[in-house]
């Protein structure tokens, strides 16, 4: 808690000359610093100590930002005030947010995890405009947020909270990204899908499943891998060939019934782009680029991303 004073007022209060107060400040015996409007700021704790030394009651008024409740014993657990260092935040996308965010808290009311870890979207925005970049990047809260956009939807000032959240995620060291998200991104860049399924295994699995489907309800069905000139190129969520292969058949059954000409690429078929979640724009671009390459290579007209 800070105590705000004018040199002249403090001089009068303690019965000394204005220059005496200035001398104390300059010599460091009174630890205060310049504040706005020719006023000075000192810790309320220091003000209380000064009063005690002079045998006076601390002065509490509407202008000095101190509640009467704070009076009494010297506050030994005074929390150090945060220094605003004037550095520009790398995270706050627009410095005008300091003004345009009215701290109304509508975002915090809309957010289903407000209060988790003592944080909410309003506080995150405020931390960003105050330049608390390090704290934000170290916090796990932006990763518990699902970037659902309820906050942004409700914001009367149009603060881009989701872009902010993604920016915070993107600034974290890649090795410290929680969970398998970044590992999936690296794996995808290296082997073409998030789970590193080899090409031969994938093609074999698809053909096998196609045969099952043909026997089950779609006579004559064959899984179309790398078919040039098919109308629809379909991407695959790697969790399906990895753990729930039968789930791929639903789309195939619909295509069969509709008489659609579709195909699946044998390489770079991953449809899940985890760069979106880890805040990794470069990786995202590479993965999208590969899908575009597949579209060109196989000369398809329509791209379906069932993710």
């Amino acid at each position: 808690m800070m105590y705000e004073f004018k040199v002249s007022d403090l001089a009068e209060e303690f019965g000394v000359h204005r220059n005496t107060i200035r001398n104390w400040i300059n010599a460091g015996t009174l630890s205060a610093k310049e504040g706005p409007g020719r006023k000075y700021l000192m810790k309320f704790h220091d003000y209380q100590k000064l009063c005690e030394k002079f045998g006076r009651e601390p002065h509490v008024g509407p202008a000095n930002n101190v509640s009467p409740k704070a009076l009494g014993a010297l506050e030994v657990t005074d929390v150090a005030p945060m220094e605003i260092n004037g550095l520009k935040s790398q995270i706050a996308l627009d410095p005008a947010w300091a003004d345009s965010c009215m701290t109304c808290g509508t975002c915090a009311s809309a957010c289903p995890i407000s209060g988790v870890d003592g944080l909410d979207p309003r506080k995150i925005v405020r931390m960003a405009v105050l330049g608390m970049d390090e704290e934000l990047v170290a916090s796990n809260w932006p990763w518990k947020c699902t970037m659902c956009g309820k906050c942004e939807e409700s914001c009367p000032a149009n603060i881009q909270i989701i872009a902010l959240m993604r920016k915070i995620r993107g600034l974290r060291k890649r090795a410290l990204v929680p969970g398998p998200i970044h590992k999936g991104v690296s794996m995808c860049l290296e082997r073409g899908n998030n789970l590193g399924i080899p090409k031969d295994d994938f093609v074999f699995l698809c053909e096998d499943l196609g045969q099952e489907l043909a026997e089950d309800c779609c006579p004559g069905f064959k899984t179309p891998i790398d078919v040039h000139g098919a109308r629809v190129l379909v991407t695959v969520n790697s969790k399906e060939p990895f753990g729930e292969p039968d789930d791929m058949k639903w789309w195939w059954k619909i295509f069969y019934a509709a008489g659609e000409s579709f195909t699946i690429s044998s390489e770079n078929w991953e449809g899940v782009n985890w760069g979106l979640f880890s805040g990794d724009d470069e990786a995202m671009k590479t993965v999208v680029g590969r899908i575009v390459d597949n579209m060109r290579r196989l000369n398809c007209k329509v791209l379906l991303l069932p993710e």
């Binding site: 289903p112 969970g179 998200i181």
Partner: peptide, 13 residues
């Protein structure tokens, strides 16, 4: 939101 968006399904939280 269902609660698992933004990669939260894969997150350790």
């Amino acid at each position: 939101c269902c609660g698992a968006g933004g990669g939260a399904w894969a997150m350790p939280f």
